[in-house]
Each structure stands twice: as C-alpha cells, then as structure tokens.
C-alpha cells in the first residue's frame, strides 16, 4: 500500500469516528424507542453552529465547548421527547417519520434563515498543523476530534453497562412490557434516551465543526449519512455504529481522493444498498 493511500485511510478512520459518534445517537434512540430520528443531521448542524458561534463570539475552543454543548443538547433532546415525540412513540411508523421530516425541514430552513447558505469555518491556531509519524501526516484537529468522539462513545458504553439508569434503559429496549411491569418509569427513561441521543449529536456536531465548515446544506446529507452508517453497522447496535462510521469514513476518503469528492457519497449509498440486500440487519445487528 502506498503512503498516500495509507494517509487517506487514516484520515478516513479519524473522520469516521466522529461520524460514528453522530450515528451512535441515532442508533441509541432507535434501539430503545424504535423511533427513527429523521432530523438527526439537522441537529448535528445546529451543534456545529453552536460551536462556531461560541468560538467566533467568545473565542471558546470547540474542545472546551464540547461538554457544555453536549449537555445543552441532552436537555434539548429531553424536552423534545417530552413535548413533541412522546405522543408518537406508539403511533404508526410513517407518522413518526413524517413528524420528524417536518421538524427537520423547519430546523434546516431555520438555519438558512438565520445564518444564510455560506459555510462558516472555525479557524483554530492549530487548524493546519499535523503530526508526522513515519510517512504519515495526520491533521491535528482530526486527531483531537477522533479522540474526543471515541472517549464519548466509551463513556456511553460504560453508562449503559454499569449504571442503574443505563441498565434500566436497556431493559426497556429488550422488553417494554416487562420494564413497565417491574415499575420502571418508561416515559422518563425514553426522555433520557432521547436526551442521550441528542448529547451524541451535540458532541459530534461540535467535533465536526473543527474538521468541516458549518452550513445548512450539510444537514440532509448528515441525516442520510447517519442512516447509512447505522444501517450498515446494524440499527440499535452501539458497536455497529462505530464500525459503520469508520467504514464510511474510509470509503468516503478513498472515493473522494481517487475518484471525485462530489461522488464520495455515491459509494456510501451503494454500500448501503448492498448491505440492505445482503444483510439487512447490518454488519453487527441482530436479525429483526
């Protein structure tokens, strides 16, 4: 393998981890509530703008604003679930979908209205620095973003594995009736789940803002990207989201370099169609 290819693959893996964190949010929400958040990319871009504004107006580095934005998004998700989504949890699939399509449309056009269509970059002092490892040149910001994303994913794994709330949420996902019978407050847990999904969005968006310029046009593309990743990895599987993210990151990076940047998502979609046909439950998912 040539040094260039290796460089590109490493870049792809790093970007892919951030994608993975974003997709993880979608996966968690779906895995527990069986609701597909169609406004996922839209809110990711909202987080990117939040990071941009904090940096632009107050000079706060995204690595500092990461946790506050994630926390704010947790709250946002919690409230959204409690007000808007809750009545839809038991409604028909297409009705949930339409509600969230409506929400996505409002959010993306709201962004367009407020910020206009132009891209907003975050220029950190080290934006163009890179680490050199042998023949590898790795962007500093990309390393930070990937490490941040990975750390948050681990934290989330641990939360679901070892805390009472995390276990309770998993119980809801496995057996809803059973969870209700043993006295778990399902509504509350759903709201927490939605909040966690949104915290992933908040964190992923903030990290994404360091490696991509915020613009409303990204939103639908990110929504689709998150879907593609999660379906490839397996809807509802946490590890699957990360694996899918990395796969898509690599595929995008390679296609972008060797073919054309504007055609990179074509390969993601081709990959999606392939996975849907050959293994509809995703690489790491259980058969539905």
């Amino acid at each position: 393998m040539t040094a260039i290819t290796l460089n590109i693959i490493v870049q792809g893996i790093l970007t892919g981890l951030v994608y993975g964190l974003m997709a993880l949010g979608l996966s968690v929400i779906f895995g527990v509530m069986r609701v597909v958040n169609f406004a996922h990319g839209e809110f990711t871009v909202v987080a990117m703008y939040a990071a941009f504004l904090l940096f632009d107006m107050l000079g706060v580095s995204p690595l500092v604003s990461l946790l506050p934005i994630a926390a704010a998004f947790f709250f946002l998700g919690y409230v959204l679930q409690r007000t808007l989504v809750e009545p839809f949890v038991s409604r028909a699939e297409h009705e949930q979908f339409i509600l969230l399509v409506g929400l996505a449309t409002v959010v993306v056009n709201g962004l367009l209205l407020i910020f206009g269509p132009d891209a907003r970059p975050i220029n950190l002092p080290y934006s163009f620095d890179s680490y050199t490892v042998g023949s590898l040149f790795i962007d500093k910001v990309r390393v930070f973003a990937a490490l941040g994303a990975f750390a948050i994913c681990i934290a989330l794994f641990l939360f679901f594995r070892y805390t009472r709330t995390g276990t309770a949420i998993r119980a809801c996902a496995d057996n809803l009736t059973g969870a209700g019978v043993v006295g778990l407050n399902v509504k509350q847990l759903y709201a927490v789940t939605f909040g966690l999904g949104f915290a992933c969005i908040g964190a992923a968006g903030t990290l994404m803002a360091t490696i991509a310029d915020a613009s409303p046009g990204l939103a639908p593309a990110y929504t689709l990207l998150a879907f593609v990743i999660v379906i490839i990895g397996g809807l509802g599987s946490m590890a699957g989201a990360l694996v899918g993210g990395v796969l898509i990151g690599i595929s995008e990076a390679l296609a972008g370099f060797y073919i054309q940047p504007s055609m990179k998502s074509m390969f993601s979609f081709a990959l999606l169609i392939l996975v849907l046909v050959l293994r509809p439950q995703g690489l790491m998912g259980r058969r539905l």
Partner: peptide, 13 residues
C-alpha cells in the same frame, strides 16, 4: 428563501 419550507414543515408537524 427558507420561510416557505418552514411553513411546510410546521404544517406537516
């Protein structure tokens, strides 16, 4: 440009 779409989105919801 986005206002009409916002209206459509809200109507859907």
């Amino acid at each position: 440009p986005g206002a009409k779409s916002i209206f459509y989105g809200l109507t859907l919801m």
